[in-house]
Design a binder for these strands. Sequence first.
DNA 1: GCCATGGCTAGTA
DNA 2: GCCATGGCTAGTA
Length: 107
Amino acid sequence: MKVKTSHTSITDQDVYILLSKIPPGKVSTYGDIAKALGHPKAARAIGRIIANNPNPISIPCHRVVKSNGEIGGFAYGEQRKREILEKEGIKFQNRIVENFEEQRLSF
DNA sequence: GCCATGGCTAGTA
DNA sequence: GCCATGGCTAGTA
């Protein structure tokens, strides 16, 4: 149950456009995307929208990870997400993106 | 009422 | 670990 207080809502398009700006070898976070869209607390909503991604082939939703550098969710499993990211040059230490802050794109 | 998050406390060692 | 957050959907009326 929710009482709506905000006038502006994030749309799927807003999110997909930003996703398309993340180059291979870089990552972003759910929270960073939320902030870039002017909704600093909407990280979880961003996750929901990304999970709906109608076109996982052309929209690089695998480049979005959690704010602490953990892998985050993926439709085909975290393992698959990790493999794709590694193919793009991202490395992992344990479950964390190596040099996370350096690989993290700022919009 | 769910959820591909995140930030902040309590409380252990 | 708790819970606020924001967008969504199932399912009741």
